[in-house]
Nucleic acid binder design. Structure first.
Lengths: 213, 213
DNA sequence: TAGATTGTTAATCGATTAACAATC
DNA sequence: TAGATTGTTAATCGATTAACAATC
């Protein structure tokens, strides 16, 4: 129905916020909302909200507003969150464990298919439903499964070498971490990385629609 | 010498990248660089580089270029990285441990002064040079030490309640995580959250100069 | 001095906001 | 129909780029 046109990154980066906010509304059984109301609650202008949505086609209805679940589903599709791109995680230290165990891959358009580490202490353990594999098997694994993205949770000094090796294998998308939401109820609070999962969503968008920017 | 004028966030967000790149150059004993060369290596335009730096005053010299260590130091001061704002970390699970243990607080303008968790299993343990304290002592701790920022590493479902409690105590700046650099050697690679520490730097900037936006 | 490169002003480009006609 | 609210065009605002005079 709607056409994928070249849309500016400014717009794309707002989509995860819309998605999250609409999910919240849907959870509270809100079924319709106007651009006016949405803009006020999210701190945008009504104009911007309408412009943003209209980049992808007419989701609304004059005199009525937008259907919440419908709009939410549309954004989900635009972002490509239904895709479940296969991804791997490198590094099973505290950070890797936290991510593998708690990151909602499914909801973010990805599917964890492999975890790698080079420490004999952790190889063979299971995190996030995955056996931790020896790092030196990553080449063969890549060839076989062609993961779309790699999450790197390794010490600073190893990042470059690992990124290079994966790049050599063909990997073109990397990420390093995404975590939980902080609800921005207080407009005078400074919060950085409020929704780091958002960046994973935009990555998913690029994988599905735009390709690497 | 140089005056702090209202500078756009677009510019501020580029400063950590300049800082990192110049640090790299300095490490390799490069002492001067032109806007032309810098822009090519960083993927900006020379115009933009000069505009950016000139928001804060004349760091360069006509016919010569910019002095690398000097420019780096200037950016460090603008960002407020010398400040070492006291901060606390809430949640000492895998994620909290990874952050407390590996995040370069010092270089990012912060100083970790307290870690909190409510699990008896971890209270009393030491991470990042800090005893893990009972979460219910956080109010008294806040009163006494007035930390400037909180890093939240707690499960999704607890984030809102904890953020609210800290807000009630007076906390106005939050962060949830920053990790390692990935060197962007390959222009065709999509990398999200490449330098998440950058957001901590901009937070530091806001704390020192701008206040919450 | 001549060459190089900044600092800065002007032009362009893009994103946000305002306005309003279309229409549910 | 009348009221409400979208979709869309036009106006504004801000950020990036280009150009060039100042000057080291």
């Amino acid at each position: 129905m709607r056409k994928e046109k070249p849309v500016s990154m400014s717009v794309i980066r707002r989509l995860p916020r819309y998605h999250r906010f609409l999910s919240e509304l849907a959870k509270n059984s809100v079924t319709r909302i106007s651009s006016q109301e949405l803009s006020e609650k999210m701190g945008f202008t009504a104009s911007q909200v309408r412009q943003d949505f209209n980049c992808f086609g007419g989701f609304g209805q004059q005199g009525y507003g937008y259907n919440v679940p419908q709009l939410r589903a549309a954004i989900e599709e635009i972002l490509g969150l239904q895709n479940q791109f296969p991804c791997i995680l490198v590094g099973a230290g505290n950070l890797g464990k936290a991510i593998a165990g708690h990151m909602p891959f499914m909801q973010l358009g990805f599917r964890l298919i492999g975890v790698f580490d080079n420490s004999p202490k952790v190889i063979g353990q299971k995190i996030g439903g995955q056996d931790i594999r020896p790092y030196d098997t990553i080449g063969a694994f890549y060839q076989e499964h062609q993961p779309a993205m790699a999450i790197l949770c390794v010490p600073k000094e190893n990042v470059e070498a690992i990124a290079d090796e994966l790049y050599g294998l063909g990997m073109r998308s990397f990420w390093n971490f995404g975590h939980y939401d902080i609800v921005l109820k207080h407009p005078d609070v400074t919060v950085e990385n409020v929704h780091m999962n958002d960046s994973l969503m935009t990555l998913c968008y690029k994988l599905s629609a735009g390709g690497p920017s």
